[in-house]
Amino acid sequence: MTTPRIGRRRRKSPIDALLSIWGVLGLAFLFFPIVVIVIFSFNTGRTLQAFEGFGIQPYLDALANPAITNSISVSLITAAGVAVVSTVLGTFAGIALARRAGWWTPGLLVLLGLVMVTPEIVSAISLLPWFVTLGVDWGLTGFNIGQVRLIIANSLFSSAVVTFIVRARMTGMNESLEEAAADLYASPFRRFVDITLPLIRPAVISGALLAFTLSLDNTVVSSFVSVAGSTPWPVYIFASLKASLRPEIAAMSTLMLVLTLIVLGVVALVLRRDPGGSGSGAAGLAGTMVGR
């Protein structure tokens, strides 16, 4: 980039310096409790809050604790299921919104917006009686399975996110390739598989991974709908708050943080390597998250 000759010269004013200090302090604030958790995950004491010694014992304890490893596997299975469900729902909805807008478009957008802004606690207390009604009163026993409940409950918000990501990607693209395929007598199915899907692949992949991480984090809705025996990881932490927190929780949380970072890194990479996509890397992600 060349600086335009006309215009002010770049110089550091006191306001710029203050802004930089403010920004760096803000970032430090955002990272403070995360750093605390990572440090305390090496606490060899009995309770999390009282730091006694430095060691990797909490990590060994966490991995040897069946209740913890069980909850992690419930969380990972749920997250995978949520990723599949929300990617399928969100991809079709995103394509339809971008390509085949109609009388239903404003209504669907309002619904998706409502899903995204309704406080989690309200969704949670609505779903609990609903699952009881479906599973117990109406005898649809599938809805009594913890994993099924978790996947359904966590997929709503994620499907809305995927829809907006795919819609953003489709709106920025020319329809001519799909029309050319249609002119060349490709069936709707082949057109979708060979043309549309490859074109929106980055949006679909990043949407799926975002749905995965969103579901890994969910505490409120999960704690209401989960049934005994299928407790996901955040619900396990939430339940142990009432007793006492042990360093294993910080250790496993640190491992999960590393997993989340890897997934986010992949999302950023997919979005960055995609020339026609929604901006580059983190900026594209941020833009998508706030609905552009």
């Binding site: 995360i34 958790i37 910080a250």
Partner: peptide, 30 residues
């Protein structure tokens, strides 16, 4: 910009409950 934006996104994607527990540890009287 991308780096700093990623630094803002990381806490956002870290477990909400775990971050809050980080504050609980920090704010406790002892």
């Amino acid at each position: 910009r991308g780096v700093v934006l990623a630094l803002v996104l990381i806490p956002y994607w870290t477990n909400f409950l775990v971050r809050t527990i980080g504050w609980q540890i920090s704010l406790s009287p002892d």
